[in-house]
Amino acid sequence: MADLKRTPVFEAYSRYGAKTIDFGGWELPVQFSSITQEHEAVRTKAGLFDVSHMGEVDVKGEGALYYLQRLTTNDVSKLAVNQAQYSAMCYPDGGTVDDLLVYKYADDHYLLVINAGNIDKDFAWMQENLTDNVTIENISAQTAQLAIQGPDAERILQKLTTTDLSQIGFFRFERNVVVDGVPCLASRTGYTGEDGFELYMDADKAEQLWHTILEAGKEDGLLPTGLGARDTLRFEAKLPLYGQELSKDITPIEAGIGFAVKVDKDVPCIGNDVLKAQKENGAPRKLVGIEMIDRGIPRSHYPVFVGDEQVGEVTTGTQSPTLKKNVGLALVKSEFAAIGTNLDVEIRGKRLKSVVVAAPFYKREKK
């Protein structure tokens, strides 16, 4: 796999039996043991992900808040220091540039975390829309990120730090958490439907910490976890993946993340008119859960029909490891989005029956 980018943890993969694939120009592990085993570990114990391919952009200056209000769909003015926020960036037509996280360090200092495959495109968009008194810096190359996810994540990570992790609430973070001697930003957001932490650190410290965390969690059943399980986990929790549930042709409202779109804030975001109209009048399409009635697995981009009319397509689908059912997410015309609606999915030239069901497919029980 020549010319693929690699994370600072890459050299450690082989020790744990990784099978790597090309993921958006990066050579990343799809699995270490098996997708099902790793999925199960995250749902019942814990898994460790190398997500150092993700992008990070530093935003500073007295104009930072105005800039981010215009750039992103959520209301950044509502953030407290050490709080994170899920958001999106949109084009003027409402299509999605990317979904992202905004971390507030101070009134004039923020960190944006963006998707790996979009780093160059996103940064160009941010530069193109730069406003006064703001500087932005792409710090992706010098920043690594590890994520430990699952019901035992806090207990395992607590062995390696004196910071009381129970004090970091959901969508909160602390900047100077020392984990086994390595200074980290530790946040609690998650992309699996489980509790857990993201650790951001200098790239040259990531491989050492990867080994340390796996060793600390060995007796607890912590497993190194690849992109395969990351995808099945986030899919069951109905967390969108850019390029599937979100794209330049799909608005955040259509994708079901309207909660991250605030259309009445002081500084309207780019695309606000379209987003506001969709919020008020309904979007033309809607992301729904589907469950197969006939035997077959719905996969990304499979067309969805009602009678002879194509009414949408599958965005993600698999056999859910938790539910043991063939399920999918599909973007369909809104008039066919009601629970109980029968839809046909075209799988290898055959139209197979499915039904619209409630999603997310999985919700963890809160303690």
Results as ranks from 00 to 15, higher is better:
16 Y>Q: 07
122 D>I: 05
261 V>A: 11
59 V>I: 15
155 R>Q: 15
14 S>M: 04
213 I>C: 01
281 N>M: 13
219 E>Y: 03
115 N>G: 14
152 D>L: 15
51 V>C: 04
201 M>T: 02
121 K>S: 10
192 T>Q: 10
35 I>V: 15
19 K>D: 13
96 T>K: 07
220 D>S: 15
349 G>H: 09
200 Y>A: 12
195 D>Y: 13
57 V>H: 03
336 F>V: 02
178 V>I: 13
294 D>P: 04
61 G>E: 06
190 G>S: 13
208 Q>G: 00
273 D>G: 12
40 E>F: 08
129 N>S: 13
189 T>A: 08
264 D>L: 07
305 F>I: 06
12 A>M: 04
48 L>E: 01
359 A>N: 11
194 E>K: 08
357 V>R: 05
278 Q>C: 07
67 Y>T: 04
63 G>F: 11
92 P>W: 03
223 L>Y: 02
89 M>D: 05
347 I>N: 01
139 I>E: 04
328 G>P: 05
41 A>F: 04
326 N>P: 09
59 V>F: 07
66 Y>D: 15
348 R>Q: 14
285 R>I: 00
252 P>Y: 05
19 K>G: 05
168 I>Y: 02
141 A>I: 12
209 L>D: 00
354 S>P: 05
100 L>F: 09
226 G>S: 07
46 A>H: 06
100 L>P: 00
200 Y>S: 11
48 L>H: 06
302 Y>K: 07
33 S>C: 03
308 D>M: 06
314 V>A: 01
305 F>T: 05
334 S>R: 13
340 G>N: 02
349 G>S: 02
300 S>A: 13
25 G>C: 08
365 E>S: 14
166 S>E: 13
267 V>C: 12
228 G>P: 09
32 F>Q: 08
255 A>Y: 01
220 D>H: 10
287 L>T: 01
262 K>F: 14
44 T>V: 09
122 D>Q: 07
353 K>Y: 10
367 K>H: 14
255 A>Q: 03
187 S>W: 01
289 G>E: 04
119 I>E: 08
139 I>W: 08
26 W>N: 02
42 V>W: 09
270 I>G: 12
168 I>N: 06
249 D>H: 11
232 T>F: 08
96 T>L: 08
25 G>S: 05
297 I>L: 09
11 E>V: 00
180 D>Y: 01
234 R>I: 05
187 S>M: 07
296 G>Q: 07
309 E>H: 11
236 E>K: 06
77 S>Y: 06
345 V>S: 01
60 K>P: 06
100 L>E: 03
340 G>C: 10
309 E>D: 11
310 Q>M: 12
37 Q>W: 02
230 R>W: 11
149 Q>T: 03
194 E>I: 03
200 Y>N: 12
138 N>S: 10
316 T>N: 13
90 C>H: 05
127 Q>K: 15
277 A>L: 11
181 G>I: 01
261 V>M: 12
306 V>G: 04
28 L>S: 03
350 K>Q: 15
223 L>P: 04
40 E>T: 14
175 R>H: 11
75 D>E: 14
233 L>M: 10
126 M>T: 09
46 A>T: 07
266 D>C: 03
54 M>I: 12
356 V>F: 09
226 G>M: 12
362 Y>L: 13
180 D>V: 00
24 G>I: 05
42 V>F: 07
71 L>H: 06
103 Y>P: 06
35 I>D: 02
170 F>W: 15
265 K>V: 03
300 S>Y: 10
148 I>H: 00
89 M>W: 08
18 A>K: 01
359 A>V: 13
232 T>M: 10
